[in-house]
Write a protein that binds this DNA or RNA. Structure first.
Lengths: 240, 240
DNA sequence: TAGGGAGACATACTCTCGGTATCCAACATT
DNA sequence: AATGTTGGATACCGAGAGTATGTCTCCCTA
């Protein structure tokens, strides 16, 4: 229905102007595919910027496509909708973060050293506005908590889990996977919160220092118990 | 402009049907004010339910006003918009939670006992779907992180801060307010995250037990160091 | 006790925005 | 050349947040 807009002139500017043409054309991908990939990247680029600056709800698709100099048609060709676009941004930010932390971890063999190095890296990386906004603040709400956790599970949280596993299996007692996950969750939450407090502080430098000292202290206490072979306490007395 | 709908019959059902008439009419409030307060409460009631069930974005104002059997006019008379309505819900849920924890804290004098009791209470209360959804998951995104923290600052977080202050000033060393806040933030984050993992577990009972044991262990390590009078570690070597 | 605020809503409208339907041009394939 | 496929443009739609304005009724005061 609706009068067909077939005679709409289609002023079609030369299209795909100066963009693309990166990656030397050697590979087997056609020019068309290159263009496609480049507009997709452009969309994610702009979306990342706008989501970070104004948040998910306050960022309109019109603004995004305008920024990427395409139209909604292009957007909906590459993504199923606003949420999937957000996911793409989310994954990218996560990947960046994850890589940065992994990098900081290299060069430490002792698990406890690794933990401390990871902590320091995390405190730095969490100050990135993109990570704060996209991952920490809006991730759970936009993706839904379940999907959010699935994503985390495969990146930043995985790192924490690895470290926790390393330091705990180095101890004398053994514990099941569930308990490991629990410890990792707790530390991960502590890190996230700490990171937030750093990022939103008036003086991030000073805040970061405080966070490192505090967490260092807690970890030290933890380490002492673990290395002393102290058993896990039982749950409270209401466990029948 | 626009044709004035003055002749729109106004079918006006008896209005303010069976609701209200709670609180024995002794106080100095007029009947008018009672009615007003009751519709406001009805709005918040319904909003709390729908926000909890479907989330903020997926809950339309139309659904809320329909549930409360009023119109948008009423809603916008009492609240400046959807967000302010959410804030009202948020505050109520927070207050409920806060009160529950405070209650669990009574009857413990030793700060460390208090900490453990508070932990247990928190793990329970965080399983409430309303708290999870409204406060933990959507609070930061909807309110914006700053406003979210301001609110937390005055309720649940305040409790954690109190406890942390109690256990730390009981120790030998002294530390400034900022450092206290940092510790509280960290523990608060750990608690929130732990609470989430409990609430979203297949077996919340078992998850709650694990959380308590893990956090109990961490606290024990913390306590050991504090009571040993161990100094805070310096920050990492890049502090010039 | 009449009347005039003003508070407490109702109704109808606007406008932004996410999503859809449809079309077209540029390649790819035969 | 004919055909299919992909990348993308345009126009449109409906949902829903917010607004403009009217109106009823309680309450207070002269």
């Amino acid at each position: 229905m609706a009068k067909s807009p077939k005679s709409s002139v289609s002023k079609l500017v030369p299209r795909v102007s100066e963009v693309a043409k990166a990656a030397g054309s050697v590979s087997g991908v056609s020019r068309r595919q290159q263009y496609s990939a480049s507009t997709k990247r452009a969309l994610v680029d702009v979306a990342e910027r706008l989501f970070t600056e104004n948040g998910y709800a306050a960022t309109s698709l019109d603004a995004i496509v305008a920024g990427a100099r395409v139209t909604k048609g292009a957007l909906y060709h590459h993504f199923s909708g606003k949420q999937e676009l957000f996911e793409a941004v989310f994954e990218r930010v996560e990947a960046k973060t994850s890589k940065a932390i992994q990098k900081a971890l290299r060069g430490h063999r002792d698990p406890w050293d690794k933990a401390r190095a990871g902590l320091e890296a995390f405190v730095v990386v969490v100050q990135d506005p993109g990570y704060r906004r996209v991952v920490i603040q809006e991730g759970p709400a936009v993706l839904g908590y379940e999907r959010f956790r699935e994503q985390e599970e495969r990146s930043t949280f995985a790192i924490v889990l690895d470290i926790v596993r390393a330091v705990l299996t180095a101890g004398t007692w053994e514990l099941d996977e569930e308990m490991l996950q629990t410890f990792a969750r707790i530390f991960f939450g502590a890190l996230s919160s700490a990171g937030d407090s750093v990022a939103s502080a008036e003086d991030p430098e000073a805040a970061a220092e405080r966070v490192e000292r505090a967490l260092g202290f807690i970890i030290a206490g933890f380490q002492a118990l673990v290395e002393a072979g102290r058993e896990l306490p039982p749950a409270s007395e209401r466990t029948d």
